[in-house]
Design a protein around this nucleic acid. Sequence first.
DNA 1: GTTGTTGCAAAAGATTTGCATCCAT
DNA 2: ATGGATGCAAATCTTTTGCAACAAC
Lengths: 161, 161
Amino acid sequence: MQNSKNHIDVHKELVKFSEFLKKKNLKITGQRLLVAQKIFSTKEHFRVEDLFDLLKDKKDEISRATVYRTVALLVESGQLTEHDFGQNSKFYEFCSTSQYHHDHIVCLDCGNIEEFHDERIEKIQKEVIKKYDYTLVDHSLNLYGRCNQLKETGTCSKKKK
Amino acid sequence: MQNSKNHIDVHKELVKFSEFLKKKNLKITGQRLLVAQKIFSTKEHFRVEDLFDLLKDKKDEISRATVYRTVALLVESGQLTEHDFGQNSKFYEFCSTSQYHHDHIVCLDCGNIEEFHDERIEKIQKEVIKKYDYTLVDHSLNLYGRCNQLKETGTCSKKKK
DNA sequence: GTTGTTGCAAAAGATTTGCATCCAT
DNA sequence: ATGGATGCAAATCTTTTGCAACAAC
């Protein structure tokens, strides 16, 4: 894991979330902070169900509904991005404004998700959308592949679970 | 609608599907042909529920289960592509081998879906995936935007429903 | 006749929601 | 005190599946 999410300043993000809540006249509750903290301490792309399971460890379990509701708030606050990798459930990922936008490579064998950024593609996208007379709001680019390591050696260090 | 799907040779595609079924020792049934025919006569990107509703008009309604099962077969036969535009349900689209691969622009206002193809992006993708040591199987690129026509004139000719 | 297919209703999986109770402010 | 939050269970939505009756080969 060499991604930038190893260095999340959890405290800073919690403050940011709290300010977001305050600004919207929403309450800063223990459950919300626990969910947010767990997310900010998580480097991976995760599904809400994964997060719910992780939070089960805590002495006071947080309800599934609250976890879903808090994730939605964090998307709204701009601290989480939602991704759709063509599976049944959505994936979420911490996102900071200081980070480069990135796209994903999804391994069909391992389930591993890699991030990449290519400025040339970003530029062409802007060109394309302009040509079709739209204003670009967002985009998603996923490359689905099979990792060569697995193909060649029969095992794959990236394999999950 | 200026897309290539106005010119689907329905008969040819039905033959192709029948051959696929035969090869797999599956049966050529009235329901399967009706579902396939309806799809090949449809130019748009559709969801299975849309298709099911369309087929309700027919005197003999085809069950939802059969529609889902037939769509899966058509994906397998290579005559349908599955897309995920970040909504709850999947979209499907006729695809012929003679067609260029294309990506999508999804309008967040209209719901309109435009197709585009940019060879430069395709090329860069191949380069990227190689660098990360994967074998590219598939990819999806969606640009989400707001159409300028709507923004400027208050109406939009592409608006659905 | 055999084997795969259909329709139905139930199941499954993800996510949302109504509501009574509870808690942050 | 009061307006928003929580937990629970029920509801929704999409898609899948088990099974008995049925149709294609």
